[in-house]
Amino acid sequence: MDPPAQWPGADGAPVACREKLKMLAENHREAAQVLRDAFEDAVLMGVDEAAMRRILTDLVAALPSPKRP
Rank of each mutant, 00 (worst) to 15 (best):
P3K: 11
A25I: 04
L56H: 01
R54Q: 14
D2Q: 03
A50K: 06
M1P: 02
D48G: 01
V47E: 13
L21D: 02
G9D: 08
G9L: 00
P69N: 12
P64A: 06
A62C: 11
I55N: 04
K67L: 15
K22I: 12
G12K: 08
L21V: 05
G9V: 04
K22P: 01
P8M: 09
A61M: 13
G46I: 01
V34C: 06
L56G: 02
G9T: 02
D41W: 10
G46S: 05
A50Y: 07
Q33V: 02
D58I: 02
Q33Y: 00
E19V: 14
L44E: 03
D11N: 15
M45I: 04
A5G: 11
L44N: 05
K20F: 06
P8I: 07
R54N: 14
S65P: 02
A16L: 15
V47K: 15
V43D: 00
D58H: 12
D41V: 13
A50H: 07
A62L: 08
L24M: 11
A31G: 09
P14S: 12
T57P: 06
D58Y: 13
E30C: 10
N27K: 03
R36V: 00
G9A: 06
G46F: 02
E30Y: 06
I55L: 12
I55G: 05
P8S: 11
N27Q: 12
E30P: 00
S65W: 04
V43C: 04
K20G: 07
T57C: 15
L21I: 08
L24C: 08
F39Y: 04
V47Y: 08
Q6R: 15
P4K: 03
R18Y: 05
A13F: 09
A61F: 13
A38M: 05
P69Y: 06
L59C: 15
R18H: 08
P8D: 05
Q33E: 05
M1V: 06
P64K: 00
A13G: 10
V15L: 13
E19L: 14
V15G: 02
D11G: 15
L24W: 01
L44Q: 04
I55V: 15
E19G: 11
M45W: 05
R36W: 04
A38E: 01
A50P: 04
W7A: 07
D41Q: 15
P66V: 09
M52W: 03
S65T: 12
K22Q: 14
M45C: 09
T57G: 14
M45T: 09
A31E: 03
